[in-house]
Each structure stands twice: as C-alpha cells, then as structure tokens.
Design a protein around this nucleic acid. Structure first.
Lengths: 131, 131
DNA sequence: CTTAAAGTCTGTAATCGCTACAGAGTCAAG
DNA sequence: CTTGACTCTGTAGCGATTACAGACTTTAAG
C-alpha cells in the first residue's frame, strides 16, 4: 500500500510517516518502480506503536530503544520498565514545576488591585528580582 | 558597562542577552568605538524583568506586550491581567494533560508482571491502538 | 613593549518533533 | 488528453535558547 493509505490506517500524517522513517524509528520500505514507498502490515503496526508511545509522551529516542527491545523477546523487560519509570518521573517533575508556577502566578495575580498600570502589582512583581 | 557585567548583574547568559536584543524585547544599546555593547542600569532592570517573566513561563511575545504596557502607566491594567490569566489557564491545562499521561503510564506500568520482554505488558499496551 | 589571556563581535547551526511548503514527477478517471 | 489527486525530494519554519567558529579588542603580566 502507498503512503496515503498507510496514513489513513495508522492515523499518522503523511509527512510524519516520512519523518519517522528519516529518523530511523520506522523501518524503511520497498520502493515501487516510480519511487513510491510501499507499506506492509508490519509498518502499520509499527506506526501505531509509535503513535501511541508519542501520545504518552515518550521521546523519539525512547521509542527507538523500546522498538529495539521489542525485537529481543528473551531479554528481561527491566529495560522497558526503566525507560517507562524515567519517563513517568520526568512527567511528575514537570507537573510539580508547573504547579509551583501556577501557585506563584496566582499569588501575584491576586495581589493586584486592578486599577491603572502604574499600580499594577503584576508588573511590579515581575520587576523585582526574587519575588 | 559591557555585556559580561550585564550578564553577571542580571543573571542572564551573554548569548541570551544578545538574543533578547535581537528579538526586540531588550532595548538596543549604544556601542563603544570598537563595537562593544554598552549597558546602562535600565537595561539590567529590563533583563531582570524578562528573566523573572521567563521563569514564570511567559513567552517572549507575552513579555514584549507586558513591557510595552509597562510604558503606558495611565492605561488600565486589565490587559496585563488578561495576559496573566491566559498564561495561568495554559499552565493548568498542561498540568491536567500531564496528569492524565501520568495516570495512564502508571496503569500500564503496574500491569506488567516484570518477566521477559515477550510478556511485557508495557510493550503490549503500546502496540494496541487505543488502550 | 610584547605577549598571552580574557572578553566581545557577527553569523550560523543545533536542539525537538514535527509541519508546511515549492517544484517536480506519477497515476487514474472522465 | 487532460485534469486532479497523489507522491517524491529538499528545505525552512516553529520557540527559546545554546553552542560554536573565526575575527577582533582589551586588559594584565612579564
């Protein structure tokens, strides 16, 4: 099948499919006489895997590694767990960071009486280095 | 003062200072005979404002607007509030999104018995389109 | 006075994960 | 036979920096 159908079946944009091939997480395809990429079922499977992993926020590098591990069924899945844990850890850190930002913004915003710019506490707070 | 001292006083990297000038959120400087940038106190103030706003996650475009509003003390600070609220909203949405990712990752991760890759439920879950 | 080190300049490329073209070629239907 | 849909490659853009290379200037020490 050609890239258009692969796109419809996998849910990946055409340009993204070509991108995944370029960065080496999607296996290269056979080419037709005219140079069109020809996709097989396993490509669709791969694309769905990639898409789902991306939806869960895994990086392309993580996915490369996950796909490579997938090819070695006899290995312990500890490496997979480790990638997942690291990723989860990263997400939790980002959440904590964003929560602290939100708290701080809320605090600053609440302190502003809402009159003229001259008395705006938000701008004032931004002007002061560490408050 | 030259860029090195401006960097030390403001806490911005030298290259970042030049970048802020290039994108137009830091006022251009007078140049010395040899072409070195000469910074005054108000540049340091501006840099601290920018740095703090960036720490709170405001975009460069937001900052450009905040700085421009700051120059008009007679205006209502409603525009400032609006930028801040929008930003806070964006952060809260990102938090929600990351929390849903974390829940899903946790769920998938917990379902894995931890043996061989062949039985790894994480890889299995990633392979299945919508679960 | 010379030389070495530290500072500064401009311009360009890299980061990440796509997305969006331009311009050319291919294929199927009417 | 032509129109339109599809595909190709290659390149540039996004955002906010960071990281050079290669050239120039200034400062401090010997």
């Amino acid at each position: 099948m050609k890239i258009g159908e692969a796109s419809r079946l996998s849910g990946c944009h055409i340009e993204t499919i070509r991108y995944y091939e370029r960065v080496g997480i999607l296996s290269p395809t056979v080419r037709s006489e005219s140079g069109y990429r020809c996709y097989a079922d396993h490509h669709i499977q791969q694309l769905r895997f990639i898409l789902h992993a991306r939806e869960l926020g895994f990086s392309v590098d993580d996915i490369r590694e996950l796909l490579s591990l997938k090819e070695q069924p006899d290995l312990s899945c500890q490496a997979v767990d480790s990638i997942t844990d690291k990723h989860l850890h990263g997400i939790r850190n980002r959440i904590k960071y964003l929560e602290s930002l939100a708290r701080e913004l809320r605090r600053i915003s609440a302190s502003c009486p809402g009159g003229d710019i001259a008395e705006c506490r938000i701008l004032e707070a931004l002007g002061n280095s560490s408050d």
